[in-house]
Amino acid sequence: MLDDVDRRILRQYQAAPELPAADLAQRAGVTASTLGRRLQRMHSLGVLRGLRAQVHWPALGYELEVSLRITLDKTQARAFDEFLAAARTVPEVIEIQTFLGVVDARLSVIARDLAHYQQVYRQRILTLPHIADIEALMHVATLKSDEALPL
């Protein structure tokens, strides 16, 4: 479906998403018209889904990020659906993931400070349905976050 030219374009594009089209074409070693055509095609195939802004939460006063690893009570048939639906209503939850493995789900929760975290944790997280166990990992530093694919 994709050839080496497509992969080369994606490799350069994901490394510098804000580069002007002409520069991107040059880095990928293609003409501007080829670049436009290839990107258009990858969009229509659904390979390239778009560009998403990254909000840097500390700049808005959210200094804390906590990863909550959650085990659900799986004796309840609708545990996953009801838990996920309720987690979506908590504004401080910025990521929701489900897993096959040791834990069932993970929420990324941001807070302004420890007092605010305590409040969100008690009032919004512990009240989510079907939780059997929660473990918290406090985020200290991000060392790599580009999420680039090794294309």
């Binding site: 390979v47 560009l51 802004a53 909000v55």
Partner: peptide, 19 residues
């Protein structure tokens, strides 16, 4: 300038790219 908006990220279909 205030650092609220960082570099945007490309959203790719991992499965379609073989991952």
């Amino acid at each position: 300038d205030l650092g609220v908006l960082g570099t945007p990220r490309l959203v790719l279909d991992h499965a379609a790219l073989g991952f």
